[in-house]
């Protein structure tokens, strides 16, 4: 990474920041960016499409790194609603806590949250990996379709409600499971998958796959049937 280009949001607008980042060519040598005085502004580093690293020196508002492609975004603070929403690839690292709907609908890449994530973390997840070192709130992985959610702490109520084929790994206590979400026996393939996710998150050796339990779809609600009406 080259020496960071400093961008002070006390002096410039979010529009100017994102325009500068969007103007970068994939081959740019301006691969390091430091955003100062973010002060919870929204849509910081949203829509990146180049392999650069953007460090945000403070708290981010809603939709930080939204729809990220290829880039690495590091938030040296907490992130508001929808961090890394619909991410396609790359890596987003929140060093504090994340608000609601972290990683919502994300298709690819890795969202790493050092703290806790609030409600609906990984809602409608479509293939990305989310690793939360702390705990997640209620309705995590609601309607999650694909990808993995790894939680080192606890999960709130209704984990995995109406889940499709996403894989959920929780090390701590699960308050309750949502509709059609069941505990699934861990296979060797699951352990290998979890190990790979932990390694990618830099947690290799700190926690072991066999400390986790896996949850997934019971697939009983995949087709409408009158006898399932009470499940919703």
């Amino acid at each position: 990474m080259s020496a960071p280009h400093s961008f002070d949001l006390a002096q410039h607008s979010v529009r100017e920041l994102n325009a500068a980042l969007h103007a970068l060519a994939p081959s740019t040598n301006a691969t390091g960016w430091l955003v100062q005085n973010p002060d919870g502004r929204h849509a910081l580093a949203a829509g990146l499409d180049v392999p650069v690293t953007v460090e945000i020196a403070g708290h981010a508002g809603y939709y930080c790194a939204g729809m990220n492609q290829h880039a690495t975004v590091i938030v040296h603070g907490s992130a508001g609603t929808g961090v890394a929403e619909n991410m396609m690839s790359g890596r987003v690292h929140v060093q504090g806590d994340a608000s609601q709907s972290a990683g919502a609908t994300a298709h690819g890449g890795l969202l790493l949250i050092d703290g806790n994530a609030s409600a609906r973390c990984g809602i409608s997840l479509k293939g990305a990996d989310i690793v939360v070192k702390g705990s997640v709130g209620h309705m995590a992985a609601f309607m999650a379709q694909a990808g993995t959610l790894v939680v080192l702490g606890d999960a709130g109520d209704s984990l995995g409600d109406s889940i499709y084929e996403a894989h959920l790994y929780v090390r701590g206590r699960v308050a309750s499971l949502g509709a059609d979400c069941i505990e699934v026996p861990m296979t060797a393939a699951d352990r290998a998958e979890l190990q790979e996710k932990l390694q990618a998150a830099g947690l290799d050796g700190q926690v072991r796959p066999d400390e986790f339990r896996r949850y997934g779809s019971g697939r009983t609600l995949y087709h409408f049937h009158v006898d399932n009406a009470a499940a919703y």
Binding site: E85, R120, I123, E165, Y222, H223
Partner: peptide, 17 residues
């Protein structure tokens, strides 16, 4: 990003606002 042949239920609320 869904299994083939299932009855698909789209969400009625946006997931992140």
């Amino acid at each position: 990003t869904l299994p083939e042949g299932i009855d698909q239920r789209s969400a009625c609320r946006h997931p992140d606002w």
